[in-house]
Structures are given as structure tokens and as C-alpha cells.
């Protein structure tokens, strides 16, 4: 009996000590971690816009300053009209705008797509013509490193710059990830709607293609406004 008491006592004590340590670390570091995540998110928006270069390492303070100066976030309803954040409906969409000298240069659409193992989070920047992709970044995913995880690699993301989400006739077709190299596999008239795929990551590419199409479809009313040069943002 005293042995059992000793075990219980030891277990209780251990649990209390471990919980205290973990709680202290978690609450004490939470503010810092959240700030890191926010800065990382802002950095990825800046990278998608091409305001900072991929390889560039910049401090948290610089990131926040660049973000404040260049980027503003807006909400639009499903028909593409701007709405105030506190009045937005459940189907409102977030959008990030990069303007220079009071003209909109490009806008960023948040990409939260299904991947093979979890959600892929990223940003897709589109030029102010509403059809050309300016850049793409991935800031969070659970794909296999070396295979699907290559979606965050520089060569894959660079792939997207200059591609179109519309076909030669100007109709929305989204952008898709090819199996293998676009130049080898695709007829030349639709090459601008495809990016090179990652070998060994066919499914990740398939899901990301589908996710992007779905998201870009929802954002199509805004893209149309940009294409018609009739933007009220």
C-alpha cells in the first residue's frame, strides 16, 4: 500500500511540474510566436508581390514597415464589391492590394488549398490586368519533404510568374500544374496556363491545381473588374 501511495504521489508531482513548465513556456512565448507567424505571413505576401526577393533575408521590423507602406488588405463580397471588414457577410473574400503612386499594381489572393496530407497555405499575386500571375508563395503545408514539399522550393514557385489564368480567348481557365515539364508535354497554345510539375508529387500537384481553380473561380468577379479596368477598390 505505501508503495502504491508513493507511485501516485510521484506521478502527481511529476505531472504538476511538467504542466507548470509547459504552461509557462507556452504562455510566456505565445506573443512572440504569434508575432513570428504574422511577420512570416506578411513576408510571404511581399514575396508574392515581388516587393522583396526570395533569397533576401530581412528583419521583422523591416518586413512590417514594407508591408505597412505597400500593402493594404480589403474585403470584397461575392460580386466583387468592396465591403467594410465589420459589415462583411459570411461569403466575403479577403484580398491584398499593392499600390504604387495611387495606382493598383497587383493584388494577392490567399490560397488555402487541399494538399495530399493537409492544407496548403499560400499567396498568389496577380497583375493589375487580372489575368497574369505575378508570383506565388507557400508558407505552410504538410507535404512530404523532397516530394510534395518541393512546392515551397524556389524553382517551383518561380514557375508561376508570367503564366495566365485565362486562355487565348480571354476566358477564365485557371492555372494548372502539369505532369513533368510543360515544354515537353503540352501543346504550345496552352503552355501559358500550365506550370512544370514536380516528379514524385503528382497528387500534390493535382490537389493544388484543383484548389487554385476553385479559389480563382470565387475571385473571378474581381479579376473581371481588373480586366475591364473598372476597379472600385
Amino acid at each position: 500500500m505505501p508503495n502504491r501511495m508513493k507511485s501516485l504521489l510521484f506521478a502527481t508531482l511529476l505531472c504538476v511540474v511538467c504542466s507548470l513548465l509547459l504552461t509557462a513556456a507556452s504562455t510566456g512565448l505565445k506573443a512572440r510566436q504569434q508575432q513570428n507567424m504574422e511577420v512570416d505571413r506578411q513576408k510571404n505576401i511581399l514575396k508574392a508581390f515581388g516587393i522583396i526577393d526570395d533569397a533576401q533575408t530581412i528583419s521583422a521590423a523591416e518586413t512590417q514597415q514594407l508591408y505597412r507602406h505597400n500593402v493594404r488588405s480589403v474585403w470584397v463580397d461575392e460580386s466583387g464589391r468592396s465591403v467594410a471588414e465589420n459589415l462583411r457577410g459570411p461569403r466575403a473574400l479577403p484580398l491584398y492590394i499593392f499600390s504604387k503612386n495611387d495606382t493598383v499594381q497587383a493584388y494577392v489572393v490567399p490560397i488555402d488549398s487541399r494538399g495530399l496530407w493537409g492544407t496548403i497555405h499560400g499567396y498568389l499575386a496577380i497583375e493589375n490586368d487580372g489575368s497574369t500571375i505575378r508570383g506565388f508563395t507557400v508558407y505552410q503545408h504538410q507535404e512530404t519533404p523532397g516530394l510534395g514539399g518541393e512546392i515551397e522550393s524556389r524553382w517551383f514557385r518561380k514557375n508561376f510568374a508570367g503564366k495566365k489564368i485565362v486562355n487565348a480567348g480571354g476566358d477564365f481557365v485557371s492555372v494548372r500544374i502539369a505532369k513533368g515539364s510543360v515544354d515537353d508535354r503540352m501543346p504550345s497554345d496552352i503552355r501559358s496556363n500550365y506550370v512544370d510539375g514536380i516528379s514524385g508529387a503528382t497528387l500534390t500537384g493535382k490537389f493544388l491545381s484543383e484548389g487554385m481553380q476553385e479559389i480563382l473561380e470565387a475571385y473571378e468577379p474581381i479579376a473581371v473588374q481588373f480586366r475591364q479596368k473598372d476597379v472600385g477598390l
Binding site: 513548465l21 509547459l22 512565448l29 510566436q33 513570428n36 507567424m37
Partner: peptide, 11 residues
């Protein structure tokens, strides 16, 4: 603990 510290200081 190691994971929490990494996320706070070496994000």
C-alpha cells in the same frame, strides 16, 4: 519545450 523555444526564437 524545445519546439516552443524554436518557434519563438528560430521561426
Amino acid at each position: 519545450l524545445a519546439d516552443e523555444f524554436l518557434r519563438a526564437f528560430m521561426y
